[in-house]
Amino acid sequence: QAALPCALIVLGISLSRYRLRPSTGSLALTLVKLGLFPLLVWWFSSWLPGLDQAARSVLVLLAACPTGVNVLAFVKQPEDTRAVSSTVFLSTVLAAISLPLWMLLMAA
């Protein structure tokens, strides 16, 4: 039960050491996560037999969610913490724009 609060504390500590300056790598990861990944899920789910539109919409919207804080557990080098933390933050902020767009697309 303490895993998520501890991960959020680690993220906060790692972000508090420096100003947020997203690199091209973190921006690219964010764009892939919020744009390309949901698009691929939509495309692959259209090929699955027996999957109705509601289930496809749920899969796409789950894929369009921001990068989770749990990815910090996979950081191997201390200097990578900045890029990963920036990706988590940036994807969370930009998901406020991209998620409603994906919702509109899935409703059409």
Results as ranks from 00 to 15, higher is better:
Val41Ala: 03
Leu105Ile: 10
Lys33Ser: 14
Ser86Lys: 04
Leu101Ala: 15
Gly35Pro: 06
Gly68Cys: 01
Phe89Gln: 06
Leu101Thr: 14
Glu79Gln: 07
Leu29Ala: 15
Ala83Ser: 06
Gln53Ala: 15
Val71Ser: 09
Gln53Trp: 12
Lys76Trp: 10
Leu72Ser: 00
Phe74His: 03
Leu39Ala: 14
Leu48Met: 14
Asp80Met: 07
Ala54Gly: 07
Leu99Pro: 12
Gln53His: 15
Ala83Thr: 08
Ala96Phe: 10
Ser98Ile: 06
Leu99Val: 15
Val93Thr: 06
Leu27Ala: 15
Glu79Asp: 09
Leu90Gln: 04
Gly50Asn: 02
Met103Thr: 11
Ala63Tyr: 03
Ser26Val: 07
Pro78Asn: 00
Val84Asp: 00
Leu99His: 02
Ile97Asn: 03
Val60Pro: 13
Gly50His: 00
Asp52Lys: 13
Met103Ser: 11
Lys76Asn: 12
Met106Cys: 12
Leu31Ser: 15
Asn70Tyr: 03
Trp102Tyr: 05
Leu31Val: 15
Ser57Asn: 12
Trp43Arg: 09
Ala63Arg: 02
Ala28Pro: 07
Leu59Tyr: 08
Leu27Val: 15
Pro78Gln: 04
Trp43Cys: 11
Leu39Gly: 13
Pro38Arg: 05
Pro38Phe: 06
Leu27Ser: 13
Ala64Ser: 15
Met106Asp: 07
Thr87Leu: 04
Lys76Glu: 09
Trp43Phe: 12
Lys76Ala: 07
Leu62Met: 01
Leu62Trp: 02
Leu62Ser: 05
Thr92Arg: 08
Ser85Arg: 01
Leu105His: 10
Leu62Lys: 02
Phe44Arg: 11
Leu72Pro: 01
Leu34Gly: 11
Phe89Met: 11
Ala95Gln: 03
Val69Phe: 12
Val32Gln: 04
Gly50Pro: 03
Pro100Cys: 07
Arg82Thr: 11
Ala83Asp: 07
Ala73Cys: 02
Ala73Leu: 11
Leu40Val: 09
